[in-house]
């Protein structure tokens, strides 16, 4: 039956299924489970060794696209070329750094007949780590207190309000936990030397880390919410294994988040739950997490639902999911030939 209708063509980024994986391959597996068998998957890759490029039963064809730093014009020009070859129906971007550009070109894509299902730039900015505290406070949610500082003297004031330990964070990366003023000062100088100003000082929250995969319909409803706890993490802090949880309070804060933001598309809420049951938002990732295939396993296939909504189908919010479903991440060595590597490197297509 499926073969009679035009295949849906879906382009997906984030094919770097390596030790710190991008979500692309997991998204594609979910799409292949949840959509008609004849869908065609177009990989969009930045680097030539992204494993998904070479997995031909996962990705039908891959094209290289410009790095986000090349700008939205370059991205649009490349997507137009790919669209001429492939007649794309839906694009699912999966990297934080590329979202700015994809949001910017989405009206132009729509005019070409390519659908996306993305948050707005305002939604993207509101959940940025710089604005997170203010943002959550506005909606009756909680995030660790933070303060942006430019001088080590300001650490005194932070300690008075937040108490020790403090988390001292660099402008772009790195975080150091400080238990005393001396440690905080040392961290301040170390991080400013490395990343420059400003420094973000954050209240330390002790607790259990919980991640929630959420799909919002853009009108304030959560189509799907799946909470998961990491059972074991790698030395890079990435999930090695995880398990779905049943907890009404987690569903409630995710519902509140989606209602408050009218979030459109997938996202991952990183929550720290304290021993006394309070839930702090640590970070909000504006795209599907790498463990998104677990949502398909648990009965709420978020990527498939996203594609259907992007194509205009009304999807009833999911209510049930399997609790106690686990994922265990594994690696395998895929074998290919140097000619494939040369082809994607030299011609930008494979």
């Amino acid at each position: 039956m499926d073969q009679d209708i035009e295949p849906i063509v879906i382009a997906v980024t984030g094919l770097n299924a390596i030790d710190s994986p991008g979500p692309g391959v997991a998204v594609i597996r979910a799409l292949r489970d949840g959509l008609p068998k004849n869908i065609r998957i177009i990989g969009l890759a930045y680097e030539t060794l992204e494993p998904g490029i070479y997995l031909h039963d996962v990705v039908d064809k891959t094209y290289q696209i410009p790095y986000p730093s090349a700008g939205s014009d370059a991205l649009l020009a490349r997507l137009k070329y790919i669209h001429q070859q492939e007649k794309i129906n839906v694009i699912i971007p999966n990297f934080d750094a590329e979202l700015h550009n994809f949001i910017k070109v989405s009206p132009a894509l729509k005019a070409l007949g390519i659908q996306t299902f993305l948050p707005t730039q305002q939604q993207l900015d509101a959940r940025d780590k710089i604005n997170l505290f203010q943002f959550t406070a506005m909606h009756g949610l909680m995030a660790p207190m933070d303060k942006i500082i430019y001088s080590a003297d300001e650490l005194y004031g932070c300690a008075e309000i937040m108490g020790y330990p403090l988390v001292v964070k660099g402008k772009f990366y790195d975080a150091i936990i400080a238990n005393t003023f001396e440690q905080a000062q040392k961290a301040f100088f170390k991080l400013t030397a490395k990343w420059g100003f400003p420094i973000i000082v954050q209240q330390f929250i002790a607790g259990t880390e919980i991640n929630i995969a959420v799909l919002g319909d853009g009108k304030g409803n959560a189509t799907s919410i799946i909470p998961m706890r990491k059972l074991y993490i790698t030395d890079k802090g990435k999930a090695w294994a995880g398990i779905t949880l049943e907890d009404e309070s987690l569903i409630n804060i995710a519902t509140t988040f989606v209602k408050a933001t009218k979030w459109k598309g997938g996202c991952e809420l990183e929550i720290m739950r304290t021993a006394d049951g309070r839930a702090f938002f640590m970070e909000i990732n504006p795209r599907f997490p790498a463990w998104i295939y677990l949502t398909a396993g648990a009965g709420q296939n978020q990527p498939a639902a996203l594609v259907k909504m992007a194509m205009g189908e009304a999807i009833q919010p999911y209510t049930d999911y399997a609790v106690g479903k686990m994922f265990i991440r594994y690696a395998w060595d895929h074998i290919t030939d140097v000619t494939e590597f040369q082809q994607i490197s030299g011609l930008g297509e494979l």
Partner: peptide, 15 residues
């Protein structure tokens, strides 16, 4: 002819 070069001794590819 398309300009790809493979060095089997080092494993490097060039265009």
């Amino acid at each position: 002819e398309s300009g790809f070069i493979f060095h089997p001794g080092t494993g490097d590819s060039f265009s």
